[in-house]
Amino acid sequence: MALDKAALVEFIYQLVAKAQGKKQLKAMDLQKAVLKEHPDQNKNDVKFAIKDLIDTGRCVYTYFGGSFVELPHEEGAAKKV
């Protein structure tokens, strides 16, 4: 069954949180993971749920040879303070 907006956002957040430090997930990985569990979920809902996570700052886009969705973390390349 398709998730409502708030539940979908939380579902995606948990996917990102569980993968943090182990696997970097692209937006499409998240979409595929959602559709695997909830095949009737609209793909656009997934896009906007990711947007919600980014706009609220709970997740960030990162670039490490490809663009990923991750939890905010320290920039490894920056000078350690």
């Binding site: 947007k51 706009d55 990162t62 920039e75």
Partner: peptide, 8 residues
């Protein structure tokens, strides 16, 4: 760098 950007 891999993180910096502007919100959203």
């Amino acid at each position: 760098g891999g993180i910096v950007g502007v919100l959203g």
